[in-house]
Amino acid sequence: MTSGKMSRRVFTRALGVVPVVIAHAPQAEAQSRILTEMLATVVDVIVPGDETPAASDLGIHVRLIDQARRIPNYPALLSEGLGWLEQRARTDHGLPFLQLSMDRKEALFALAFDAAPQSLPHVFARRVRDDALTAYYRDARAWGGLGFDQPIQPAGYPDHQDPPA
C-alpha cells in the first residue's frame, strides 16, 4: 500500500505548508552523509532496538533510500522532511537534530506525525513510518517474540488446529 508512486498533488501541497532548508553542509557528499545519518536516527525512533535489532542495525534506512530512488517525488520528500526536523531541532532546542537526546528526537517525530493531514511533516512521518515498518518486518531478524519465526513455507502450519504455543 505504500510502495506506489507518490501523488504529485499531495506532495506539492505538502511542500507548500512548511518551507524547509536542508542542512548546512557545503558539499553534496557531506549533505548525503548527514541525510543518511538523520534517516538512520529516524528509523530507530520508529523501531528502536531491544531484544530484536533496531531498524538501522538491519540497514532499513539504506533500503528506504534505495526504494526512494525508484519512486517519483520520494527523494525530495525525504530531504524536505528531514530538513523540517532539522529546522525544528534548531528552532526549538538550538541544536542540530542529530545532537538531540533520544527523548527529544522522539518528541519531534511525534510532532511531525501529528501535524495537519497533507502537511509536509505529516506526509513525511506517515510515509517513513509505514515504509520503515514494512522493510523491518520483512526481515526474519525482526520476528523474535511474535510467535512467528520462519517464512510460511516450506513447513506451513502443521499445528494450525492447536492453540498457539
Binding site: 525512533v45 528502536p48 525482526a142
Partner: peptide, 17 residues
C-alpha cells in the same frame, strides 16, 4: 508481521514493538 505493523498496531517506537 508487515500487515500487523502497518494496519493493526498504531504508533511507533518501543510501545509499537
Amino acid at each position: 508481521p508487515v500487515a500487523y505493523a502497518t494496519r493493526v498496531v498504531p504508533g511507533w517506537g518501543r510501545a509499537h514493538k
